[in-house]
Design a protein around this nucleic acid. Sequence first.
DNA 1: AATTTTGATGAACATGGTATTCATTAATGA
DNA 2: TCATTAATGAATACCATGTTCATCAAAATT
Lengths: 203, 203
Amino acid sequence: MKKEKTDRRIQRTRQLLSNALIELIEEQKYETITVQHIIDRANLGRSTFYSHYQSKEDLLYRGLDDIIHSLIWDVERSPKNDQENGIRQPLLSTAPLFRDIQEQRRLYRAILGGNGIELVRKKIHHHISVHIQEQIAQLLPVDHRCIASPAVIAYHMAGTLLTLLTWWLDNNRPYKPETMNEIFQELVMPGVWSVLKTTNAQR
Amino acid sequence: MKKEKTDRRIQRTRQLLSNALIELIEEQKYETITVQHIIDRANLGRSTFYSHYQSKEDLLYRGLDDIIHSLIWDVERSPKNDQENGIRQPLLSTAPLFRDIQEQRRLYRAILGGNGIELVRKKIHHHISVHIQEQIAQLLPVDHRCIASPAVIAYHMAGTLLTLLTWWLDNNRPYKPETMNEIFQELVMPGVWSVLKTTNAQR
DNA sequence: AATTTTGATGAACATGGTATTCATTAATGA
DNA sequence: TCATTAATGAATACCATGTTCATCAAAATT
């Protein structure tokens, strides 16, 4: 009568496959990993893999779901926690993000470093970008027009965040997470505020 | 006695392979292109391909060499041509870049758009980044220390340029090349100047 | 504890791409 | 014209994919 998949074997198998993939991701470039490698590492049969997942990407998405969402969450609980900047709200609070990533650097470097996984980068970039765009929308009067649309600005900010993260992870994190947060704020925000203030009318 | 490969057949074959690859790149995602596709399109035998190139990537690098270098050249002939900004030199002149890319949007979208070719992105990113870092070095007094190293700043600037390019190409270029140049300058440069001026001593 | 349901398994298979070899053919430059 | 050199395609060994199926083992249900 139970439709729920509470069967221990299912849990066990999926866990094994997930772990195998994460292990492999930390060892080699994602693109070079094959289903063969994964099942070898997990010690499972080929048919077992395909009875749970459609493809490598399917496993990737479902296996990394938690991790991805915790990252996005770090950014989206912005900016209430972080009031130290005083006058202006930060628009995007990145301090917790850099801290959490520091904690699990090995995995995150494999995912977001220069040899990371494009699929995941894009997913995260998109989420963050959408979030920022909403923040900007709330901030601006409805008839406000800048030279650059909120869409570009948001895309730019999310892109910058990921670029800095990649650099940080690839260069053995030469700055503390707190410093990275400062660098992000100081490098990016002046331009953003400047553009948000410049209406088309003014030009 | 001629070591030069002036044999017309060689020229012809390589041209055919190059063209085939570029055609395919404009049609489908690079990763899905196989050597099989390339030789089918070029109407050449399998062994012919391998007698010229080691792999798909080999052909990619050599085939796109000219294109990549013209892009990098656009950025590196900076900033002498573009004096309209008056007081400050632009550090990075992007106007010609956006213009040239507009000219060949189809190809560049295939390469630098969201579904573009990571290998090429990285190569371009690296070249531009190195160039900017040199520019910054020339600008700063030797003992100057910022919160952020010239290396991060350069990496950030190059990253932003590519991010904006990607956005522009993926969204059917809603702004003119000149406007994109302005957006880049106004979004990025305030933060960069702000960080370059903030010495560690001051904090 | 017995029974039924469900997942795991491995072998087999068809498919399709890779990268190399080699003997033959054709175009090229001198 | 002719020696050289490239193109060719057929053959080959290899490996990964994705699917099927009959069998086995471990769950859940009774």
